[in-house]
Design a protein around this nucleic acid. Structure first.
Length: 383
DNA sequence: TAGCCGTGGTA
DNA sequence: TTACCAAGGCT
């Protein structure tokens, strides 16, 4: 027989998460946060809507991405894909082109596939239940709660980076948030105001973005200062605790700008799955130990495209950082010598003119190569 | 569970 | 320059 607890505390036994939910002053926390929000909340474009479609777009764009970065993409998106139906009917290439530069390109592929699923399964209207929203690609519990609370005022909690940080400080969490997800979700569930879920969730995110910031939080403007464990212990700078991370690997990459006799350049479309899936790139690959850059380019182009090239002058050297590694790209002009290019390790290959290359979606590092091509003196391979 | 998945801003 | 981080999801 289970013992019932009189208060809100939850005792947990699994290793690494022994901390328990505090006995919150729930009504006080709700009221103070909501009145802070009424005065200090942000005016953001997607908050002018109750239509779930623009809210969905904003929530996906805002995943791991700052508001300032999102805003121009958000407006461009709604101008180009005004309805779920129009998004569903568009080509993936058009969708990726609009997303170019935002990163995490699976988000764009998932929006596209999600729109098609909504047309097929929900008559073209965004679903109104948690279960149905969660079944759409790219929508997890936080995003589903964010959309459904904002659009329909449904009482669903959220747990994004802002909220994790706020609660980690509020309760003085003694472990990295990743080790206490269950407890943090409980905080969000228990505190959520069932009368005002929309405003409460938005207020939490605004508090995290403008007051309870990662560095140098502005505690004197915080409505929860009287309840905050981190503030009482003066540990704001030390919470949330961080996980140990391993250093980023650094890869050397050889890249080829291959010209044919018509002055066109060879590009390939990356496979759907994995890094930069569905985007176009200049072919190339990792420089093996002991290999020169021209050696690498000859080998990679043979393996990926089954053609022979002559490696010419260096165009540019680029540094680029991804989430889990860094790369140095050494880019050379090349001349196509023999063979018809085959998409052996890509979905498609294509010869394009420099003046039409902007039609294709490219990752950031490749955009830099295109800019270098436009600015630099012509290669001897270029007619 | 922890690693993969982009890019831009910041100290 | 380096490291961290931002309205996370997926496997």
């Amino acid at each position: 027989m289970k013992k019932l607890n009189q208060n809100q505390s939850v005792t947990r036994t699994s290793a690494g998460s022994s901390q328990s939910l505090p006995n919150f002053a729930i009504l006080d926390l709700r009221e103070s946060l909501l009145s802070w929000y009424a005065q200090g909340g942000r005016d953001l474009p997607w908050r002018h809507h109750r239509d779930p479609y623009p809210i969905w777009i904003s929530e996906i764009m805002l995943q791991q991405t700052q508001v300032k970065t999102v805003i121009p993409y958000y407006h461009r998106w709604l101008e180009r894909f005004g309805t779920i139906a129009s998004l569903a009917e568009s080509s993936q290439q058009d969708v990726l082109k609009l997303w170019q530069g935002l990163g995490y390109y699976a988000r764009a592929r998932n929006l596209h596939a999600g729109a098609q699923a909504i047309v097929q399964d929900h008559g073209g209207s965004f679903p109104t239940t948690l279960e149905a929203a969660l079944s759409l690609p790219g929508i997890g519990r936080t995003t589903a709660g964010g959309i459904l609370s904002a659009a329909f005022n449904l009482p669903l909690p959220i747990l994004d980076g802002n909220v994790k940080r706020i609660f980690a400080r509020l309760i003085g969490l003694q472990m990295p948030p990743a080790k206490a997800m269950k407890l943090l979700w409980q905080c969000s569930e228990v505190l959520l105001d069932p009368e005002n879920p929309r405003d409460f969730n938005q207020a939490l995110m605004d508090l995290g973005a403008t007051v309870c910031t990662p560095k140098a939080p502005d505690c004197n403007r915080c409505p929860w200062i009287a309840h905050c464990q981190a503030y009482q212990l003066q540990m704001q700078a030390d919470l949330p605790m961080r996980q140990t991370s391993s250093p980023l690997p650094h890869k050397q990459i050889g890249v080829a700008v291959i010209w044919n006799e018509r002055g066109e350049i060879l590009i390939d479309r990356r496979r759907q799955e994995g890094l930069l899936g569905g985007l176009w790139e200049f072919p190339g690959g990792k420089i093996e130990p002991g290999e020169t850059v021209p050696d690498c380019i000859h080998r990679e182009i043979r393996e990926e495209l089954a053609i022979a090239v002559e490696v010419g002058a260096q165009l540019i050297i680029l540094e680029h950082a991804y989430t889990h590694f860094r790369v140095t790209l050494t880019v050379h002009h090349c001349r196509h010598v023999a063979g018809e290019p085959q998409p052996l390790e890509s979905d498609e290959v294509r010869w394009v003119r420099l003046d039409e290359i902007d039609q294709f979606p490219f990752p950031k590092a490749n955009v830099k190569i295109i800019e270098a091509l436009r600015q630099s003196p012509n290669s001897s391979f270029q007619p």
